[in-house]
Amino acid sequence: MNQQPAAQLATQITLDITWHYSATEAMSRFLAGLRERRIEALRCDGCGRRYLPPRPFCGRCCLRMHNWVPVADMGTIEAWTVVHVPVLDSRTGAPRPLPYGMALIRLDGADTTLNHYLDETDPAELCIGARVRAVWRDEVVGAMDDISHFEVLR
């Protein structure tokens, strides 16, 4: 990198604002389903793709989606990593214990994948194609982390 210019004063700003995101009708139904430990995807009438997480519009076909299809809470790992860089839990602001497993998971009945945690952090025990099952929290509130993580099935 290049030569450092003369130092200047820096002002530290902490932004403390709460945003209220509208979840969309589709996501609202999806999250309500999680409260009942039920997972649903939206299927596009054009390409037949079953989107999970659901969204109201298929970006490939430019069509609104209305057809809900059930999805299992078991699936297959499509990509995985074991993370060693510090990450803050966006709900609590607390650092997440390291390392942790993270995967893209294609649930049975869906054509797209979900990001979620894995219970496994040993790379030797992970592979693309491995089967996983959702581990639900005891108390579900209608949020993505109603699923605590996915356990790798052996």
Binding site: M27, V83, V85, V87, S90, N115, A143, M144, D145
Partner: peptide, 15 residues
């Protein structure tokens, strides 16, 4: 809704 609560950064996506 779906990814921010998991604390995913671009480094994780690259991995």
């Amino acid at each position: 809704i779906t990814i921010q609560p998991l604390g995913v950064g671009f480094t994780v996506a690259a991995g």
